[in-house]
Nucleic acid binder design. Sequence first.
DNA 1: GCCAAAAAGTTTTTT
DNA 2: ACTTTTTGGC
Length: 842
Amino acid sequence: MQQDPDVIARPPEALIGDLNPQQAEAVQYRGPALLIGAGAGSGKTRVLTRRIAWILTQFGAWPSQVLAITFTNKAAAEMRERLESLIGPVASRMWVSTFHSACVRILRRDGERIGLKSGFTIYDTADCERLIKLIANDFNFDVKRYTPRSILARISDYKNNLTSAREMLAQYAPDFKPGQRGYRVGRIGNPEELYAVVYAEYQHRLAAANAVDFDDLIVRTVELLRACPDVAEYYHRKFRYILVDEYQDTNHAQYVLIRELAGVDAGGHADMGAVGAGRVGPAWITVVGDSDQSIYAFRGADIRNIQDFEQDFPNAKTIMLEQNYRSTQTILDAANAVIAHNEGRKPKRLWTAAGAGEQITAYAADTAQLEAHWIAAQIKRLHTDDGVRYSDIAVMYRANAQSRSLEEGLIQARVPYQLIGGTKFYERREVKDALAYLQAIVNPADDINMRRILNVPKRGLGARAESQVTLHAQQIGGTFWDGVAHADQIEGMTARTLNPLMRFAQMMQELREFAQEHDAKPSQIVAEVLERSGLLEELKKSQDPQDQSRVENLSQLQSVAAEYEQNTPDATLAGFLETTALVADSDQLPDESQDSGKVTLMTLHTAKGLEYPIVFLTGMEQGTFPHARAMEDTSELSEERRLAYVGITRAKRHLFVTRAAVRAQWGRSAEMMPSQFLDEIPADLIDWKRKEAGMERMRSGWRANASHDFGAHGGWNDDEFDAPSSFGGSSYGSRSSYGSGSSYGSRSTYGSGVRGSAAHAGKVTTRRAPVRQPAQPASSLKTDNHLRIEDFAVGDKVTHDKFGLGTVVDAQDKGRNSVITVDFGSSGVKRLMLRVAPIEKL
DNA sequence: GCCAAAAAGTTTTTT
DNA sequence: ACTTTTTGGC
């Protein structure tokens, strides 16, 4: 048996001795296809790295024959690190990377075969949106009705399903030729025609700009492997073992990519008795995932990939890991109870050998500000009284917009924190500007970036000049840059425009030469660009205080380039740009080995894969979490619930759940009902520090006097009398802190009548809660539309606020939780919770 | 072409 | 509430 002499030899016992039987079985399994169903905290990464070491030492594979795929750079880096300590520096010879960077690597090598020149640019979402807007202008369609965002979402769907623009055109607009001017989109006809035309034109322009978007990285790699058998053959021979992490988050394109890379469909069948994957036939595949943690369906992840694994890959074996090494039984019980509410899932129960641990602590605050205040006070207390390190605490939320009030609370309490995510560094205006210069230098055909910098900094080349150049470029059949370079041929151009244009062309030419001479020193190129372009100068002389921090960001960009240069042996400018294009939020998380001394704030999505001794799950309100836009569709609601499951299982020792009764959104305050997920956690696991907010207490008191038939609206009032603090007497934040607690929050935050009348002495609830609809909070979130399931039958027509006209294809009577399934044609088939669906029967 | 003022969009989650 | 885009006057 061959073996790489550089791989540190490990006796088998060292790799499996400390594992439980299922883990050990997963590490050792010999066979063409293995699915490891890894529940949260079940030691997944450990099993994966041990299995790789096992494959190398026991199956006799070479490191270069292994491809391990993760979703984030952080996960890839962590895996590489752990492999290095297991098998030594040879780990660097393995491909351990994300889907996207693996594809970049493949495309850089052979992309020319499908028309991608090697310096290709990767467009981020903002770039893609600009491109769609350009197309929208040329085709003159209604951007209000078809927003660039929604069109891109549609195009992304097509790509995730490997539907080409050509197929779409053939079906909906056979007359359209990409690049053609003056095509009239049928104005009443179906939107599909417009999508098809824009999709095709979008791809056409990406190709002309030698650019790809994120989805293209996967799609075009599949295209390459399918179009060039010799390239596919190369990878079939090369990769004999393929391992995929977070398999539940793969979309169809990624699934096909794996199959193509492994050569599953390329013939040759696996020998079940074999000791290894050998040299021919399909590669051996290991996938790891947990269908309960699938939270990316919104971007095309298809849960069926993991559910159907056994049918998709012949002779597949499944091993379930259900023992959890992370959390207390209390936390796992809560997680199990919540996720059990999802329909149609394979039952699975996490268990632990650790004890019950502390109860879950819960708190209902009056406002988001007070919620933050309470959290900050708890963190302070944990830190000072219990000696908990700040870095052992994480605060999680559903949407980035929630971070602001939490930050303010922590600042007030002087708790150090780090915020992960939000506006990314590389998406800041000034950084994007600088990167646009670099992209335009590497790839002059990149119209989007070239246009972006034409008048940044201001050099007197506005919309007029831009359209003149565009027109000229079209006439000579070249790129935007060609138009700039030959601006002197443009008829009717004034010297006032021509001069700065020529200077711009000259400058770009010189920057290009500079870049070619210093290709291995991206940091020097960055410096030169900042200087020559005048970007830095414009910001430096600006009066706007914001521009000061912009200067700092630009200097940080230079540092990032210098760092890249030091860590990368064969550094190039194009290589640097690649790393900037593929960063994720979680990549900015510091190494867990070092104590940052800070509390971590992040979204639940970013938190996936992480763990903290103390976790705060905030904003547990209907409309916040589950998010309002996910509440009516049962499949989207299931995804929210999985997200709650992910959040709960991040906690090792102590979980806090909090909610606010009033939350400011869109500049207005809205009353929020408690999240249904709180109801789904068994009551005996929760220690409520405060169960009802002041207003709710007051109102439920009124209701109890007025009538007795409110029980149906959720059991939130049952222990109102033994809650720790009585109405109005919260230990934090008195009335006076409403609206003045933060430097941003003006009084108007709470001014929408509610607090205004509260200030005018006790007549609050009569106005707010008229007897007719006492339990209906005056928020935008209706809990009941009073539609009755009996009124709906298969075949009935309905209209939906968002999806338009549809036909009922199924109606299930489940009382309050009745669900109807409606086919909305091009918007798809939706399962809607009848009680909350914004529909009308026709 | 530029700037200030007004209007409109934004808040799902991300490689 | 905040940011981006559009508009209108210079």
